[in-house]
Design a protein around this nucleic acid. Structure first.
Lengths: 211, 211, 211, 211
DNA sequence: TGATAATCGAGACGGTACGTCCAGTCTTCGG
DNA sequence: CCGAAGACTGGACGTACCGTCTCGATTATCA
């Protein structure tokens, strides 16, 4: 997630403040203009930095924006323990939606995902910086539910992780789609319905798979 | 889904052939170059049309691409009648995933959604041209299932449409997320699991709501 | 100087009013925008006429403007008989300068001359429509002066017409240069000095040629 | 006569070579294509320079062409010392006519003058870059003639400069008119006649003014 | 009284150039 | 060596006109 490796040790050292200013400026510009109108010249100007400095540290728009966005996800997402699987899901859905409604995240996340559609390296970078952190929450939630006895303990085999992935895609996908495409609010009611759907459906998956 | 409204009746009428050629050229260019390298000049040249003609009908890249992609959804997305709700869902999921794996759709859809994050008019256009058509499938699927007796008939109230919207966001969101973010294949097995999750979870929603 | 030949006799006849409106609109637009920003679309709009109508009658910008300008010179220039060659010259210089100070003439005349720099047909058209009419004044003025006995009568040979041409170029050229390039006023004083210069110089030419 | 003022001192300095290449390319393109077909894109390409560079230094076609042509006047127009006022005038007239017969000058000079008819800034630029240099020749010629005793020494008052201006407008105007409008050759004979007219007329002006 | 024919308005069409903007690189100065 | 400033090439942008065309609607003369 860091800029291009500095590597050398002689000469004037790079300003760490500049790095922070650039990333902040990137987020601000992105929120205002969107990906398509985001210009590196504008970012540099906002950060009070020369374009040269910017290009010395990042290879291009994509890399810069991914780094800028990754910081947003760094500490925002954690799984609250609300006593039941259904409540936990509802809680994390609400948190995630809240994150997606902040204009900087809203624009930035979709922009990098879109750009990743034809850029494998960028996709990998997104996975490491953002997605894997989220996916971890699913595993954690499942383990808690198993500990509570809400769902049966892990059977050995590929079915478990596959189920985790399905849950992850459903939760993240549904929230993103609701917010970005349907552009309707993710409130407690909607989140509750999604949670019910998942908990009940998840039980159905278990019985369907190992009868 | 159509270009900017003509509205008048005098003067030389717009060539319908040009419309078709432009949309086809847009899809071809999109598949070859990707969103970032797509130039309207190139599209015009491929379509054998002047740039002016293109700008006379669409306000910009985004609007053009939405219309170009919408046509794909029109012809590709229909609900197969496979005998059961679960099979129907599985079928439409597979079709949708196939559509999302085409390079033109893959690249275009996410890019316009990202751009729509800060452009209300574009979001509206996407909704009309693409999303509403997809949502119609959900309604159709529910009615078929009710006719088959798989789910209880419509109760009056807001709960029905809300449930449709939830289903829609879950199906579309999960497929998009699986393909674009997790970048893992949507095969029959995954689609089957998602279908089970939904059918079972949907039943749970009914019992949870009107016990 | 007229529009393209109609030639036929059946069908709807061309509107004579349109012709006048177009020429007037051309002069107006030319005065406001200058040659470089003069657009035929604008002329058509001002004249309340379709572009088609305009192109049906004139082959292009040049032809249209020459015709539009020629009308200005049609009846504006005549030689006042003020009793002496010097006074006549002063008078015609003042009239010509006044014509050149009207914004429509100012812009239009120079524009067509400039365009004629690389268009022989246009130069010919200008000569016939505008220049020859002016040159006639020189001949007329000389004859009057000879009748008054101010200058010796015509000797046979090429020297006479050559001298007329010189006078013509000097008078017309000096006025145009004063107005357009030096952009200083052509007042009675300046016109008077030019007249003296010419009358005295002209006498010098006679004695220099036939001693 | 120079491009837009730079003013600052930091950053990469402007390439002087680019300036020369652009002006040369402008003259070449002008000679080949004429004013109407002169394209700034073409000029840039000929000069091996990006269009941006061109627009960074000149505000438009007119300004660029004025500067490009001004260089020609700089090197071509000087006053030969041929021993007498009459011979000097004849000489400079022939040189000026030769300059006006070059296709690049012919086309360019009239076009910018025409455009200046409704553009004060452009008129000023022409004056500074071209006209004042020519006018200087008149002053120089008069001083030489006074030194030779051909015309009386300067009397104090406004009459002197006014007379210079008259001479200037007559010489420049007559030559331009002969070449551009009458389109007849400026040969030694014609130039000689003009010189006689001026020298004799000039003397007449002196006696008419201070008898 | 129609038929025929050229006109009219409106405005879309293929083109060409425009002048602007941005990406990414390079060059200079100063710290 | 770093950083700010800013000029550089290159290429797409969206706009403006050009001169042509295709319409439907007039308006004349000829049959």
């Amino acid at each position: 997630m860091c800029p291009l490796s500095p590597g050398k040790r002689t000469g004037r050292p790079r300003s760490a403040a500049a790095d922070r200013a650039i990333l902040a400026a990137t987020r601000a510009a992105l929120a205002e203009q969107g990906w398509g109108r985001l210009t590196l010249g504008d970012v540099a100007a906002r950060a009070g930095v020369a374009k040269t400095t910017l290009y010395r540290r990042w290879a291009g728009k994509n890399e810069l924006v991914v780094d800028a966005v990754a910081a947003l996800f760094e500490e925002q997402l954690e799984l609250p323990d609300l006593g039941s699987l259904e409540a936990d899901i509802q809680g994390v859905v609400l948190r995630f939606a809240e994150l997606l409604n902040r204009p900087e995240t809203r624009t930035a996340l979709m922009a990098v995902i879109a750009e990743a559609a034809h850029d494998d390296a960028l996709r990998l970078r997104i996975r490491e910086a953002i997605v894997d952190r989220q996916k971890h929450l699913v595993v954690l939630g499942r383990k808690r539910a198993q500990a509570r006895g809400e769902i049966p303990p892990e059977e050995d085999g590929a079915a478990g992780p596959e189920r985790d992935n399905l849950i992850f895609d459903v939760v993240a996908g549904a929230v993103v789609h609701r917010v970005m495409v349907s552009s309707e609010p993710v409130d407690e009611e909607w989140a509750g319905r999604l949670a019910v759907l998942l908990v009940v459906g998840l039980a159905g998956l278990h019985t369907a798979q190992d009868p």
